[in-house]
């Protein structure tokens, strides 16, 4: 038994990634998620509209962080502010009455607002009147499924080829490097496209999720996000020597996306120390776009910013991944095998 234990410790010591996973990751997760996992939203972006707006600002609970005051606007403008995520709650105070509009797609924020309805205001939940969890989760789950397919499945596919030694075989065949790289990634792109179609249709049909916004915008978000996640998958494969290493890395990338992207816990409720991480995660921006398009019918112009961030991520991540794949994984063929190769180096 002693021999087994010693052998096991020696093997464990040489597998640095596993040691890091076992020792460092729990601590990191505890700290990060301890700050992130908060259900109570203590700051709600609020808009005050109508002639009584300024007066109203002094009477509100401190949780309502007033970001917009417009004495000339009415309920229509309020709905647009919620639709474009410029505010989570809108108070409208006109001569004809008082109303409180709440964005129902932000579950925890909406619940927090409902607990603090000022006297005389009738709350009105928009976009998700029953605060249905499924409706809020489905757009985010579409992103999560894509993330899983893109990172885990793609990285495993590439690493398997590396493990079997068939990448060398490909390199000596009369195939161009671009044939190998595109040929390797294209099937996963098609599978991811199929997945997004199936999951979206299933979500709409099974959970009555609405599709209120622009379909072309949703397609753009999806395609861009697919490029990001495929890039992540290829990037993982370039630093993984085995399939188990690829899975470990993929999990390390997936967990923060689930916890810090706003998919479950609202970004607004996270402490500033970890919230910034969320803005570097692609799922964060996909969730903003998908929820906005499906549930609220957000104006496409408003979604250009999150889409732009995703495009930037796609260019950087996919670019790095393809560069590393070409440099580190795909073995290179001598540029011109019939000519001298660095003869000068030999002569020197």
């Amino acid at each position: 038994m002693q021999a087994m234990i010693v052998k096991e410790f020696r093997q464990m010591r040489r597998d640095r990634r596993t040691v890091a996973l076992m020792a460092g990751l729990p601590l990191l997760l505890l700290i990060v998620f301890g700050y992130a996992a908060r259900f109570d939203v203590t700051e709600i972006d609020t808009a005050l509209l109508g002639p009584g707006a300024v007066e109203m600002a002094t009477t509100l609970d401190p949780v309502f962080n007033v970001v917009t005051v417009n004495e000339l606007a009415g309920a229509d403008v309020g709905q647009d502010l919620l639709r474009n995520s410029e505010a989570g709650v809108v108070f409208v105070h006109t001569d004809s009455g008082q109303s409180m509009l709440i964005d129902g797609t932000e579950l925890f924020m909406a619940q927090s607002a409902l607990r603090r309805v000022p006297p005389g205001f009738q709350p009105n939940l928009l976009f998700n009147p029953n605060l249905d969890t499924a409706k809020v989760m489905v757009p985010a789950l579409i992103g999560l499924v894509l993330l899983f397919i893109g990172t885990v499945i793609t990285s495993l596919g590439v690493v398997r080829e590396r493990e079997q030694g068939t990448l060398e075989q490909l390199a000596v065949m009369p195939l161009r490097a671009v044939d190998v790289i595109v040929g390797k990634i294209a099937p996963y792109f098609v599978v991811a496209l199929l997945d997004i179609t199936i999951v979206t249709l299933a979500g709409l049909w099974l959970f009555d999720v609405p599709f209120k916004g622009s379909f072309p915008m949703f397609a753009l978000f999806s395609l861009t996000f697919i490029f990001v996640v495929l890039g992540l998958g290829v990037a993982i494969s370039t630093v993984s020597k085995s399939q188990s290493e690829a899975i470990q890395l993929a999990i390390m990338l997936l967990l923060p996306q689930i916890m810090l992207s706003g998919m479950i816990f609202p970004l607004e409720s996270m402490s500033a120390e970890v919230r910034w991480i969320g803005y570097f995660l692609p799922l964060t921006w996909f969730v903003i776009g998908a929820r906005g398009i499906l549930l609220k019918g957000t104006d496409p112009a408003t979604l250009l910013f999150p889409l732009g961030i995703l495009v930037l991520m796609a260019i950087v991540v996919f670019g790095i991944a393809v560069f590393r794949f070409h440099r580190d994984i795909a073995p290179k063929r001598s540029s011109n095998p019939t000519s001298p190769v660095s003869a000068a180096a030999v002569e020197s």
Binding site: E168, A171, V172, P331, V341, S342, V346
Partner: peptide
């Protein structure tokens, strides 16, 4: 087989 392993010398081989 034509792999570039950063070798030096003169190699005269067929095309891939």
């Amino acid at each position: 087989a034509g792999l570039d392993l950063h070798q030096t010398g003169q190699i005269h081989l067929p095309t891939p």
